[in-house]
Each structure stands twice: as structure tokens, then as C-alpha cells.
Design a protein around this nucleic acid. Structure first.
Length: 492
RNA sequence: CGGGAAGUAGCGCAGGCCGGUAGCGCACUUGGUUUGGGACCAAGGGGUCGCAGGUUCGAAUCCUGUCUUCCCGACCA
């Protein structure tokens, strides 16, 4: 038993940490709050990135890259945004080291090399980008600008967790500029839909589309849309956000355009992003006590083939069957690995690929060949099936689709069971303590009530669902009138 | 940033109170036997005990500082 992980029941947090490390997604690093994303974890991110990037391109966006550093004077231009991030900014103050005269062989910051103006390491890029857009935009003919960047950002978090919250993380941030409010709003909603589609169809992670309350809104935004997912421990995870920024950044950076009648107006803006946090969400949505469970559409490796043999003669016979199978699977666009390494025995390989969440495993032994079959095992349900070799590649292709669908349906069933409508404060507290998940409740719309509920229970309003129905009710906490239900939950 | 715990071979740990030149399991190397759920036998290799100071004839062990990680709070994606 070389690699065992803590069970979810014993300690959910420890299970998560064990899983990330033992499945080789990431490692802790020598830098406080920063992690190393290992090749398997990065492969997962690359797969997600490739799909999202295509979805962005298909909706008319292009990629660009802006600087890591933001001069402090630019950063503080949009005051609300700057204040919102001020407490977690890394700041570059010097540009040179020198030998330390008091400690031979050691270096020190050269006090003579102090920067004229401090550079903020971007926690997000609105400031540097809007400063740049000012030079790109004169007329309505220059609009819209639909730019995305894949980048790293830094937020100096006090308490970090692998993938979910690290000081540095990878993400994409879209920054668009529009001539009208309507167009910007449409863009905001469009990208929210892109995120939701990606989460559900590729990650098999069901999400609720909604709007943030004022206190949870992105600093500097007029409106923040979000997708919220539910983890297996009943806590919610904000998985992506899309912001309608109004004219806030255009005003802060003086970005005006001339419309068709040559009238000057400020540009309308959006920004939207998802990060490597999605990997944490993926892990906590599907995985079990034996390791990762990855949806086929995102899994870096979809199929692994393990030979079981005694001696070179049997190995040769198995090779004769497996090699054409590998070709057939690849021709169907399936990623496959034939693990015929002699370094580990079959049982060890089984456990290892289960830990890594490979969706389908095919075991081929001499006994199978006599009957012209193989053993196909699916990771999500742990089922094993005897399948004929003829037509096997196509069978696997269909099976991968079935696994993808089953994973989504299972996660959705769990999520739906954990959206609990409550009518009063007693029920609210009871559900939160015993069951967890989302609580659908009426709220009076005030930040005061929201804050008091948070203080009392640690639950926050995750979102006001976009499909919330209008109904008359009374606030679960204050008893004041309310027109729609919102979703509360404890959150990551 | 406050409270708690931890850091000794790649991983998991013992040793520490009572200072005397570091050990166990797994992993690794070589050879052999094996292979249908984390194989077995034999012989090997590998550690400035997180880092930096201090006490001492002598420090993994005692003292001080510091770094990193985990858990609980406050803050946040």
C-alpha cells in the first residue's frame, strides 16, 4: 500500500490535500502560499485551457498579453477596484540586489536601487489594460475590443489551499470595450453562458448561474455574474465570474469614443475570468476515496491498457492484439497509453491509474485472448465488463461518452438534492448544520441582513439565481418583504 | 495576521524528556523467481536530523531566532 489517502469521511480537507499530492497534480513549494503544478495537473489545465480558448475565439475574442507589473499610480486610478485589492497586493520597490558586507556570500536589497514609483504585481489587469485601451480607442469604429489574456496573477492570501486559493495562480481574464451599455451587458451574459457550458459539458460540474449581491460583487463592477458549484462536503465554490463594469474604468482612465454623430461618450466595459481554481472544483465534485475521477472530455489520459502475462511469449501475443487497438483508439481521437512497463505488476498499475482518475482501463491477459475478449473497467462506477475485441475501439468511444454523461448526472443529482428551500430562521440554521449545501431562502435585499446572517452562521449569499422566480415572501432573517429567493451556503 | 500542531533517507515514522557520531517500514539499485487488484528471496546504496545562531569537550536531542506546511479563527477567487 504505497499510496493511500485519507477518506473523505475521516477528514475532508486532508482527503483533498492527499489527493492532490498523491495523484501528482501539484506539490507544495519552497515559496509560502505558492504551489508547483506538476505535469499531470498542468496537463489538466492545458486541456481546460484549449477548450475555453476555442470557445473564446468562436465568440469573436482574440488573445493578447499585458505586463505583470502595474505602476501604483495606474493601479489606484479606479478607486473602488484599488481599495478592494489593496490588502493583498505584492509590491516591487527595488530593482537590484548587492553583496551583503555583513554576511559574506549573501545578498541584500540595494537601498540605492529604490524605484521612483512602486510597481504592483497584478492581482487583476483592469488598470494596465484600460490605460492601454485609451490609446486604442478614438471612434465607435474601434469598438468593440474583445481581448482575452492567459496569465498569472498574485493575491497575497493569508491562508492558502492547493488550487483553491494560492498566492499566485493561473487564469484567463477577458477585457472587452463596447459602444453601448446593452452590448456590454450582452457580452457579460454571453461569457457567463460560455463558462456554464464549459463547466457542465466538459468538466461535468453542474453550476448555478446567478448575480452577486453588492457585498460579494467585484470591486469596481456594476454587476457581477457568477457560476456557483457545490462540492461533496456541502460547501459552495465560486467557479467563474463575469463582470459588467459600466463606465467605471473608462471614466477612471478617460477612455472616450466618438459615436456616429461625433458625440463623445465613455466606453462600456466587461471583464471575466476563470482560474486554476477550477481544478480544485473538478477534484471536489467527482473524486472518491480511491483517488481522482476525471471526466473523459478533460482527462489528460482517457484510456490505459494494462497487459497481464507470464513470459515473453504471452507478452508477444498480447502485443499483437493491443498495438492495433491503440491505433484504432487514436484514430477515434481517444488518448490512450499502453502501459507495458515491466517495472510494476498489474495490481499496482490498477491502483495507480485509479488514483489518477483515468476514465477507462483495459486489462488484457492470456486468458482473455483465448476467448477473444478483454476486461474493461470504468473509473466512475468501478464496474468491470468483459468485452469482445472486435469493435472494442468503438465500444470504448461510446463508453467514454456514457461516463461523461453519468458523471454529470450524478453530480447534478447530488447538487439538486442539496438545494433546500426553507421558510424560517430555525429551518435555515437546522439545514445548514445538518445537511449543508445551498439553502434557497427569501432575503430582504439589505447588506445589513446579509452581514448578520454571515456572522451568525458563516453562510453567505452565493448568488441570486438568474432564473429565480418572482414570488412574494418574507425574509428568512428579518421578516421584511421579499420578491425572490436567493441561495445561501458556506463557501470556499 | 492571532491560536494550535509538525519538519529526522524519495514517502510514512521512531529516537528527543535523560546530549556521546542515526534507526524502522515502504520506495530505490543489482541478480533471480514472478505477473488476473498495490509480489517474493538475496545482496546493496542513500540522511550536513528544515535553516541560522548559541550552550557544551561533544547537539537530531538543550536554548534563541527564522523558514515551510497542516488545522482553527479574521480576510479573500
Amino acid at each position: 500500500m504505497a499510496k493511500e489517502i485519507t477518506s473523505r469521511e475521516a477528514d475532508y480537507s486532508q482527503w483533498y490535500n492527499d489527493l492532490i499530492v498523491k495523484s501528482s497534480l501539484a506539490d507544495y513549494s519552497a515559496v509560502r502560499g505558492c504551489m508547483v503544478i506538476k505535469p499531470y495537473g498542468y496537463g489538466l489545465w492545458e486541456g481546460m485551457r484549449d477548450v475555453l480558448d476555442k470557445m473564446f475565439k468562436d465568440t469573436g475574442h482574440v488573445n493578447a498579453y499585458f505586463p505583470l507589473f502595474v505602476p501604483k499610480s495606474l493601479f489606484e486610478a479606479e478607486e473602488k477596484n484599488a481599495e478592494g485589492f489593496a490588502k493583498e497586493c505584492a509590491v516591487v520597490t527595488h530593482y537590484r540586489l548587492k553583496s551583503n558586507p555583513d554576511a559574506p556570500g549573501k545578498l541584500m536589497v540595494d537601498p540605492e536601487a529604490k524605484l521612483e514609483e512602486e510597481l504592483v504585481v497584478r492581482p487583476t489587469s483592469e488598470a494596465i489594460i484600460w490605460n492601454t485601451y485609451k490609446g486604442w480607442i478614438q471612434s465607435y469604429r474601434d469598438l468593440p475590443i474583445l481581448v482575452n489574456q492567459w496569465a498569472n496573477v498574485v493575491r497575497w492570501e493569508m491562508r492558502t489551499r492547493l488550487f483553491l486559493r494560492t498566492a499566485e495562480f493561473l487564469w484567463q481574464e477577458g477585457h472587452t470595450a463596447h459602444a453601448t451599455k446593452e452590448e456590454a451587458l450582452a457580452e457579460t451574459v454571453q461569457m457567463l453562458d460560455v463558462y456554464a457550458k464549459f463547466a457542465e459539458e466538459y468538466m461535468a460540474m453542474p453550476v448555478i448561474k446567478g448575480v452577486k449581491t453588492e457585498s460579494e460583487r467585484f470591486a469596481g463592477a456594476e454587476e457581477t455574474y457568477c457560476i456557483e458549484a457545490l462540492m461533496q462536503d456541502g460547501k459552495a465554490l465560486q467557479a467563474g465570474t463575469s463582470h459588467f463594469l459600466g463606465q467605471n474604468f473608462a471614466k477612471a482612465f478617460d477612455v472616450k469614443f466618438a459615436d456616429k454623430s461625433n458625440k463623445l461618450d465613455y466606453v462600456w466595459a466587461t471583464s471575466w475570468g476563470v482560474s486554476t481554481r477550477l481544478i480544485g472544483g473538478l477534484v471536489m465534485t467527482h473524486s472518491d476515496d480511491d483517488g481522482l475521477v476525471l471526466p473523459p472530455k478533460i482527462a489528460p489520459l482517457q484510456v490505459v491498457i494494462v497487459p497481464i502475462y507470464k513470459g515473453d511469449e504471452q507478452k508477444g501475443l498480447i502485443d499483437n492484439v493491443v498495438h492495433p487497438l491503440v491505433t484504432q483508439l487514436k484514430d477515434l481521437g481517444i488518448t490512450v497509453k499502453y502501459d507495458d512497463s515491466d517495472a510494476a505488476r498489474p495490481g499496482w498499475k490498477f491502483a495507480e491509474y485509479e488514483m489518477k482518475g483515468v476514465p477507462v482501463r483495459i486489462a488484457v491477459g492470456a486468458r482473455d485472448l483465448e476467448q477473444n475478449i478483454v476486461e474493461v473497467a470504468r473509473r466512475d462506477t468501478k464496474e468491470k465488463m468483459q468485452v469482445g475485441i472486435n469493435g472494442l475501439a468503438f465500444y470504448v468511444k461510446v463508453l467514454l461518452d456514457e461516463i461523461q454523461l453519468h458523471m454529470f448526472n450524478k453530480a447534478k443529482a447530488y447538487r439538486d438534492e442539496h438545494i433546500t428551500p426553507v421558510q424560517n430562521w430555525t429551518e435555515f440554521q437546522g439545514v445548514l448544520e445538518t445537511k449543508g449545501g445551498f439553502i434557497s431562502a427569501h432575503w430582504d435585499g439589505t447588506a445589513e441582513t446579509e452581514e448578520k446572517i454571515k456572522e451568525a452562521t458563516k453562510a453567505t449569499i452565493r448568488c441570486i439565481p438568474v432564473d429565480a422566480v418572482e414570488e412574494h415572501g418574507v425574509c428568512v432573517f428579518s421578516g421584511k418583504p421579499s420578491t425572490k429567493r436567493v441561495l445561501f451556503a458556506k463557501a470556499y
